[in-house]
Design a protein around this nucleic acid. Structure first.
Lengths: 203, 203
DNA sequence: GTCTATACATAGATAGAC
DNA sequence: GTCTATCTATGTATAGAC
């Protein structure tokens, strides 16, 4: 990831970006005015337009994922299917959560602003080592064949909806990690708990 | 569900509502101007304001679910867990799909427009007979205990994201039913296919 | 029930001085 | 690198005639 120099200008640019992302996340792109961003970033609108040529440019900048973690390949090969999928799911949840402003903006604005589709694609279609390992096992018949990308999109959508749901009923909450009950429900889903019989449950 | 009389005025009101819902669904509430709605509904803005006192009023009207289906109780009691959950999932998918403009608007606008939360709650928290039957079995230990509402929110979010995803890559598609590959992926997920071993798969 | 005309606010964006 | 002042377009909503 590109690390900008800490000149005064770049710091200001980062500050604008940060504020804009936070506002787009909470209010949506169209509900957020450039005036509001400028005010919160403690700068004039005119100055802001020196850093980003227009509001759209700012939108594109806000959806760049900031935290991407890719687990080393070697760690994965020796795992059982269960362990691999556990880890894959858990890593995915962490990624979603760490980048949830970006994912939220991307998912809610992508249809209205097709230029975001490219970033949407890039963010989603870069395969991690975990993805590759699962795909490899599917190919070899060790894991049931599933449309992994669609599944991933689904999990992201599910997680974001659950987070929003939790937020609607507890507006004051500040999340620092994936809330436990969400994590639990996603895991129960992935592990097919819903269809496990009583006898298995009691083991 | 309340069925309005077919007077001229009511027909006009329904026409406005229909157009507005479609536009809010595709463009979002804030990207849709009252002028655009009026134009497409072939009416003046002023006339439109006789039917809805303001744009917000119109938003609230668009998220009323239009198609709700509740399977008779008796049908469900005799089913096995597998059959029940199959049916429940399938019905939920149909409901989401039939009301996807409403759900989409509700899910994307609820945070920004808290007044929608009430409708959000009503739409989600009315328990169907299927919900009750699943909850009953959970209570009796026949099905693993899961937060059913959160699960439902997750499935809705997952489905809407998948539909949107499919649409981004095939913008010309007109969906009349839940797309098969989405249905399949959701079912695979619910049924825990991801963790079924090779030997089970071959049975 | 419908229209034209218009009020009023706010949006995004730029000119040009310091 | 930052500001004030301002342009222009568009948004929601209403007045008042037919």
């Amino acid at each position: 990831m590109y690390e900008p120099k800490s000149t005064k200008g770049n710091l200001t640019k980062q500050r604008i970006l940060h504020i804009a992302r936070s506002l787009f996340y909470r209010q949506g792109y169209d509900c957020t005015s450039t005036a509001q961003i400028a005010k919160q970033a403690d700068i004039s609108e005119a100055a802001m337009y020196k850093y980003f040529k227009n509001k759209h440019d700012l939108l594109l900048a806000t959806v760049q994922p900031s935290i991407l973690f890719n687990r080393p390949k070697e760690e994965l090969i020796s795992l059982t299917n269960d362990e691999l999928i556990q880890l894959w799911t858990s890593d995915l949840l962490e990624k979603i959560f760490a980048n949830r402003p970006q994912f939220t903006i991307l998912f809610t604005e992508a249809v209205r602003h097709p230029e975001l589709s490219e970033q949407y694609t890039t963010s989603l279609y870069e395969l991690t080592h975990g993805d590759h390992e699962i795909l490899r096992r599917m190919k070899h018949g060790r894991i049931m064949e599933i449309d992994l990308k669609l599944l991933q999109v689904g999990i992201i959508g599910a997680t974001l909806s659950m987070v929003q749901h939790t937020f609607i009923y507890n507006p004051e909450t500040e999340f620092t990690h994936v809330p436990e009950h969400i994590k639990k429900t996603i895991f129960q889903l992935i592990q097919g708990e819903l269809l496990k019989k009583e006898q298995e449950k009691l083991q």
